[in-house]
């Protein structure tokens, strides 16, 4: 593992998750109907990472 991870490497994944989550939260506010499901999944994208961390082998 690179000992000098750049700021981007540290925050890249969290930043993408944050943007996706934020977009989902706002999108869900602006739309109605089935597309709400997609917005909700985007809002909860961080949960997928948590689930993946829980089930993966060390």
């Amino acid at each position: 593992m690179n000992a000098r991870r750049s700021l981007w490497r540290v925050f890249g994944a969290p930043l993408l998750l944050g943007i996706l989550s934020l977009a989902g939260l706002i999108w869900a506010l602006l739309v109605e109907g089935p597309v709400d499901l997609v917005a909700s999944l985007a809002a909860g994208c961080g949960l997928a990472v948590v689930a993946w961390t829980l089930v993966r082998r060390p």
Partner: peptide, 25 residues
């Protein structure tokens, strides 16, 4: 706009479930 964004009661049942998980976290 702050009210729904705070209480999470605006996007259907799935969003509420997501909200609950995030609250528990």
């Amino acid at each position: 706009l702050s009210r729904p964004l705070h209480f999470g009661d605006y996007g259907g049942l799935l969003l509420k479930i997501v909200w609950t998980q995030l609250d528990i976290i």
